[in-house]
């Protein structure tokens, strides 16, 4: 029996510290974040040549960079938190074209961008926390990344 489960049961048994309504409301709202018919893009290991990007370890991806792949697409997502705001930049490969839309979502807000000719996109001014990227392409199901947690 895990100690955390025992502690949690004790806390519930004491009626101490009930779940805040805001947490329950956020949980209910998660239902609206489904992507019906979407294709989940799983994480892929990222390695970069030494010196290509600043990094604490040669050959390792810089902190905050994740790569996802599905349905013939690779989605690179880099998160940065500065001055209390989350910035998300990335690239979809191969470039999905001007008809595509990149949706960067948090549980509270979503922003849509038209990718550049090379598939790059960037969004600033998001609240820190959970974030996911969805690539919408005409004639294809949307491809969405796993949720990433980004806080200072």
């Amino acid at each position: 029996m895990r100690e955390e489960y025992l502690l949690a049961a004790l806390r519930m048994g004491a009626g101490a510290d009930p779940v805040p309504e805001g947490v329950s409301a956020s949980a209910r709202a998660v239902f609206g974040l489904r992507v019906p018919g979407g294709v989940p893009a799983g994480p892929v290991d990222v390695s970069v040549p030494p010196g290509a990007r600043s990094s604490s370890e040669a050959g390792a991806a810089p902190a905050g960079l994740r790569r996802f792949s599905a349905d013939g697409l690779v989605i690179d997502v880099e998160t940065t938190v500065a001055d209390g705001h989350l910035e998300v930049a990335g690239q979809v490969s191969p470039a999905p074209g001007q008809d595509a839309r990149i949706e960067v979502r948090t549980p509270h807000i979503a922003k849509v961008r038209v990718p550049s000719g090379s598939g790059h996109f960037a969004v600033a001014g998001l609240p820190p926390g959970w974030v996911s990227v969805v690539c919408h392409r005409p004639g294809h199901p949307p491809v969405f990344t796993r949720w990433i947690h980004a806080r200072p």
Partner: peptide
Amino acid sequence: AADAVQGAWLRLVENA
């Protein structure tokens, strides 16, 4: 704790 709980619900959406 709120982030951890929300994360679990988001994982449920991903893995539905």
